[in-house]
Nucleic acid binder design. Structure first.
Length: 120
DNA sequence: CGCCTTTGACCCGCGC
DNA sequence: GCGCGGGTCAAAGGCG
């Protein structure tokens, strides 16, 4: 099923920066971080990701609290123009990954029903 | 060598 | 009308 690790799961997924541990839910698509800012309005850090594909206008927004890296909010904008590589399915093989996958399922289940699609 | 990531600054829109 | 916030772009550096 999973042939190639499309995403940089090997390198990314768990970002260890200075002493902070952030668990970014891997969706199986490739993303390119094009910005990061701290939103004081919600007191959280927001990271901006864009689909790596040129024909793909899908965008991803991730926000997490500095005190609660376990509680992350992922928001998807737009739709993918290319099929998914099924890198997430690889989690089935990794039992330990199931733990992380659980969080992913929780986050996804919150918005998988309405992938925000409105722009000013 | 190529590619990706990170930070800063700038810009625009909306609210009051 | 002005201010602030949020969002995006650009460039540079580092690493594989």
């Amino acid at each position: 099923m999973n042939e190639a690790s499309t995403a940089r799961e090997t390198s990314m997924g768990t970002e260890d920066r200075g002493g902070h541990r952030l668990i970014l839910p891997e969706d199986g698509y490739e993303w390119r971080k094009y910005g990061q800012k701290f939103i004081k309005n919600i007191g959280k850090t927001r990271s901006y990701f864009k689909c790596h594909k040129e024909n793909c206008n899908a965008k991803k927004r991730v926000e997490w609290s500095e005190s609660e890296p376990d509680n992350i909010r992922v928001v998807y904008d737009g739709v993918h123009t290319h099929a998914l590589s099924a890198a997430v399915s690889a989690s089935s093989t990794g039992t330990s990954n199931a733990n992380q996958y659980n969080l992913l399922n929780q986050v996804f289940g919150d918005q998988s029903t309405s992938t925000r699609q409105h722009r000013s």
